[in-house]
Amino acid sequence: MRTNLATVMTEPMPRPAEDGDAALVRRAVAGDSGAFEQLYRKHVGRVHGAIWRLSGRNHARAEELTQDAFVQAWRKLGEFRHESAFGTWLYRLAINVALMALRAKGGAALEDSMEPYELEDLGGHARRPDLGMDLESAVASLPPRARAVLVLFDVEGWTHEEISAELDMAVGSSKAQLHRARGLLRARLGATT
């Protein structure tokens, strides 16, 4: 069930002109930056949305990482084998770029364990758990590693196996982080259940 759901959800949102990507990719591989710009325009919303959530709604950081992801994609276009949709390949590459950068940031931004976490860049409303937060603020306020697992599993639809491979952790750790993240989320939302 989860696998099927994950398969569906990890695929980029359906695009009527997906086939057109192949031709654009071939032109881009040949050095046509105009073709690559078309690919960028087509996929940037999906890529940036995922990175923005992973980075805890940090706008500047997310934009920087989105740009990095597309630069990396340009450099690695020659490795794209056309065995999957370009959108899927780009999305996975972008998530990887984001996670690597977030991991490198500050030495170990994703290496938190069970330590309390400072709320970052959130408004006063978000700092008042007694008032409850909106869901996106609550997700953004989670510790980085717990947030990454929750966003990848509950929002992006990845499986624990995929998450554990990407974050270099055991499957059990991924499950534990998800459990922890949901608990923190409920607390921050002021949920009673």
């Binding site: 959800m9 949102m13 881009a28 591989v29 040949a30 050095g31 930056s33 690559f36 710009e37 960028y40 325009r41 940037v44 919303g45 999906r46 940036h48 949305g49 923005w52 959530r53 706008h59 997310a62 934009e63 989105t66 740009q67 597309f70 630069v71 340009w74 450099r75 690695k76 276009l77 020659g78 490795e79 869901l135 996106e136 997700v139 929750l150 509950d154 929002v155 992006e156 639809g157």
Partner: peptide, 28 residues
Amino acid sequence: LQGLRQERQPGVDLWPGIAGRIAGPQPA
């Protein structure tokens, strides 16, 4: 949470910066 999975456009157009960084021959 699943409902949060939405596309989001950057606040600024990132293409000029990308174009500047990928200028030159296609290294890939």
